[in-house]
Design a protein around this nucleic acid. Sequence first.
DNA 1: TGTACATCAGTGAACGCGCGTTCACTGATGTAC
DNA 2: TGTACATCAGTGAACGCGCGTTCACTGATGTAC
Lengths: 206, 206
Amino acid sequence: MSARKLETGIRQEQIALAALELVAGKGLNGLNMAELARQVGLVPSAIYRHYKNKDQVIDAILDLVKARLLDNILAVTAELPDLLDQLQAIMMRHLHLIHQTKGIPDIFFSEEVFQGSAARKAKAYDIIRDYLTKITELVRQGQQTGTVRADIAPDTVAIMFLGMIQSAVILWHLSEGSFDVFRHAENVWKLFSNSLLPPKIGENGK
Amino acid sequence: MSARKLETGIRQEQIALAALELVAGKGLNGLNMAELARQVGLVPSAIYRHYKNKDQVIDAILDLVKARLLDNILAVTAELPDLLDQLQAIMMRHLHLIHQTKGIPDIFFSEEVFQGSAARKAKAYDIIRDYLTKITELVRQGQQTGTVRADIAPDTVAIMFLGMIQSAVILWHLSEGSFDVFRHAENVWKLFSNSLLPPKIGENGK
DNA sequence: TGTACATCAGTGAACGCGCGTTCACTGATGTAC
DNA sequence: TGTACATCAGTGAACGCGCGTTCACTGATGTAC
């Protein structure tokens, strides 16, 4: 019983998607070529028609994750004008994305990425930098329009923003879901957004 | 050539310390029993005189990490009275600790922990919760003495605090050290500590 | 003080499993003529 | 419109390596008598 022949572009996407699913909860150690092949309805060796080796499958997953994260930002900025609304919406979308695609933190904090080759780490770092650059740019615009106080470094704000999301995700992940990430998001957003507001007139800056 | 006999308590500590060193940069995948034994001057099978299996070695590393993180907090609170000074000192010590013991993020974001068994994840979660509980308590005290604004949830502040450190560590780790974590710490501290200050008199709370 | 004995850390060879990867093959598909 | 051929996705058996773990053993050490 042979699987239907499909062109390599389609198979590559199927394989990457299946891999991202499989990684959820089990990590990359739990992703083996046999199971991955079964998931797509192929035999293990068939994977090698579409990817040179497991490393390239991992890279493909990273590309997938990158696209999803950045799409979030694009969708939000196209939709909302105000910077604070944008950041809040990005955070919520980001959390929902991870809630629904648990493989994302798993792949990011997998050993092949987090402790992988220099090239692999550089790839992950690039994704984060891309993300941060976009957030930084938004903050800068917010400063120009006066929504955000002008005396803070936009890139620092971006990293803080990412950290706020990351810590929530990590707690949620390690707690097996018992940590209420959305309730926390609400609280932490107040704290964070408040720290961005320009000082009121009459208040002493320092 | 036989290694000198040492009692199991001493060997356990030697092995855990060596394991924490070995894990640095390579992750738990890079930690194998053969290399670990060599590091301590033993033969692979000798490890099993002191630990039942690799899992128990990993648990021992986690215990080591937990102790170091919590010692930081204790040392700081014994030394400084003001809450904001305390938090800043804890952050700096935390960063220095990780700078000098790179294995800490490696073990925390290793697959055996981050995607490990429920028990393993629970253990890691407990360490973080312990840490957060202590920070939360400090913040609460700061609110009582009026150093920190009273209208924010102390546990949210604690998670934000941890997130600030985590994101810096992650960037530093993925960038292979090129991200200037200490310069970032200075900037982000201003932003964070500012958000904790009580509103000035005459300022509108909301 | 000396001897027999129990204890237990250290040894080295071997096992066995998981898993990524290779390779010669098959056969469906679309194209050239 | 029909036939020969090249292409290439899919197959299944086998390989080989890394590595955690077991086991029967040795021999140093401290204690009991």
